[in-house]
Nucleic acid binder design. Structure first.
Lengths: 122, 122
DNA sequence: TCTATACTTCGCCAATAATCGAAGTATTGG
DNA sequence: CCAATACTTCGATTATTGGCGAAGTATAGA
């Protein structure tokens, strides 16, 4: 019950939903998500923490980079979380925003570290 | 995409989630939902409107009573809505709050019109 | 037609949430 | 050790939301 509301809250903001759907394509570093969403680093960091607290993403730290990914569909995550992600994927499949983000992500993935780090400077 | 966020918002409040899960048991009149949630009529009315705008409930007016129900699982409602309700039912199944509400609802259903209308007076 | 009922809408307030920039922390390459 | 990087946390601001009671609306029964 509290799970449901927490997950509902997590899915009640378009930035978070976009991030989650983008993660459907695979793991991303925070700076890549910042680039995708075009929001301030502190804002994106907070959004990702909301998703993490809800169990919708896992975090991994590699040096100074923080990576986020979906829990593997098969294992680990609570059924309520897996169900939410299944719903999200079905609901988001090939909607205009998702397709656009997918295109943006292709560009983002090609960017170098220093290009991505620009968000912290300017 | 906007659908997802709208549904997410609708599911981000425990009063609305409880109402939706209660409606899984069948149609309810607003005053019954007011009784279940123990909130002011205006508050509950607003909550039900949020659910309605998200497509998660249908409304029916019979005289002065306003009834709410889930869209039939098989037809009408958008797939995104049906998926959300399926997820909700799986996630909410037999959680303590749901079981308690189910018990409360049994009492509520037994109440007379004038007993239910008490919420509008005091 | 008048009154009671069962709502909805409005106006307000308090609490929560989204956003940013600035300051703080951890890591790492020089 | 120092500077730069890649964050996170803090503090402030603004926007949104949840809550209530009071006033408004629609229906029904006397």
């Amino acid at each position: 019950m509290q799970d449901i509301v927490t997950i509902g809250k997590a899915l009640s903001d378009s930035a978070r939903v976009r991030a989650l759907l983008a993660l459907g394509q695979g793991e991303l570093c925070l700076c890549q998500i910042i680039e995708l969403l075009a929001l301030a680093p502190s804002t994106v960091s907070k959004h990702m923490d909301v998703l993490y607290q809800a169990g919708l993403v896992e975090r991994r730290k590699e040096g100074r980079w923080h990576y986020f990914r979906r829990p593997a569909p098969g294992k680990g995550a609570l059924p309520v979380v897996r169900g939410a992600l299944r719903w999200l994927d079905a609901a988001g499949a090939d909607t205009p925003m998702v397709l656009e983000d997918r295109k943006t992500l292709c560009c983002v993935r090609r960017k170098s570290r220093s290009e991505l780090a620009a968000c912290y400077r300017g």
